[in-house]
Amino acid sequence: MKKIYLHPIPVRIWHWINAISFLTLIVTGIQIRYRDLINLMSFETAVDIHNWFGFILIGNYFIWLVFYIFTGKIKIYIPSLNKPIEFIKGSIRQAGYYGYGIFLGETNPHHATPDHKFNPMQQMAYLFIMALLIPLQLITGLLLWDIKLFSRWIDLLGGIKIVDTIHLLLFIFFTSFLFVHIYLATLGHTPTAHIKAMFTGYEEEEEHSH
């Protein structure tokens, strides 16, 4: 079994803070929105927790951004646009694995390394999420946190209902994505391999005889 140091400690800290924050924000978000259906906590408590974790998530996003930009590791998120055919082929190959090959017992075509951590599908998804969706979610959340303070910005975006709808659509996306994300995390060589790696930093990989 080969061990690869894939997740440096700042990434692991960021990831787990992110995970806790996301779960908390989803739960409290549901409580705020569906107070008439769910009663896990009071409305005030749900709002307070939601706000606190919202700001934690904003801070955490900057930990991620600063770490990845200053270490130059940000490139792991950026698809190699100079080889688009290869990227498309890699994506199809990866989709083929998840949708077909995995059932036949084929091996994952992507072998993660510190410099090539994500497969093409992950690269596309995470770049989209980290560069667009999360910032958008954080910005709309911040605007909704104080709609009077940020009223001009809200007007620029088309009004409070537009901002709220964007925030809600992203919440729906992230909630849905979470199921897929957690499931995919169990598709290592053992169901807990990827999860353990996010604690230890080391990803275990089976050594295949060719």
Partner: peptide
């Protein structure tokens, strides 16, 4: 209401 009432929002009260 996203367009016609885009100035009115009450957390929990005006959900789509």
């Amino acid at each position: 209401s996203v367009l016609s009432l885009n100035q009115f929002y009450a957390l929990g009260g005006t959900r789509l």
